[in-house]
């Protein structure tokens, strides 16, 4: 239980940026439909890599806090990636139900 809390705590430190990307991906899918899925998927993967490489250097010192509690870098990143991707899948799969994205339709090219 303690380990889960620590993993969540690490993710909590930067969850907002990847979550906003996932919400944006969901909105793009709502507007463009399924034919844009491949592009949106790779957009998410690319932004994930950028965000995580930035966080990895920005929060490099804090990793010692978790290492001293027996949680290595690999576990931290695996958990953060998995959770982030889980939210992405949920948001993408439910995108057609998010009617509040409909205001974006008027901007559709």
């Amino acid at each position: 239980m303690k380990k889960i809390r620590l993993l969540f705590n690490f993710y909590k430190g930067f969850f907002l940026a990847p979550l906003l990307i996932s919400i944006a991906s969901s909105a793009l899918l709502f507007v463009w439909g399924m034919e844009a899925f491949t592009m949106i998927f790779w957009y998410k993967i690319a932004t994930m890599l950028i965000i995580y490489s930035f966080i990895n250097s920005y929060k490099r010192k804090e990793l010692f806090y978790y290492q001293n509690l027996g949680i290595g870098k690999l576990k931290l990143w695996f958990f953060a990636y998995s959770l982030d991707f889980f939210f992405f899948v949920i948001l993408i799969s439910q995108s057609q139900k998010f009617s509040f994205f409909s205001f974006l339709l008027k901007y559709r090219m």
Binding site: N9, G13, K59, K61, E62, L63, F64, Y65, Q67, N68, L69, G70, G72
Partner: peptide, 23 residues
Amino acid sequence: FKAYKKPELLMYLPQFNFIPGSL
């Protein structure tokens, strides 16, 4: 080879502040 995986064996204080500031 990976002592950091076993905090019951070894703990390390790096030369910089390592505790997340928000805690």
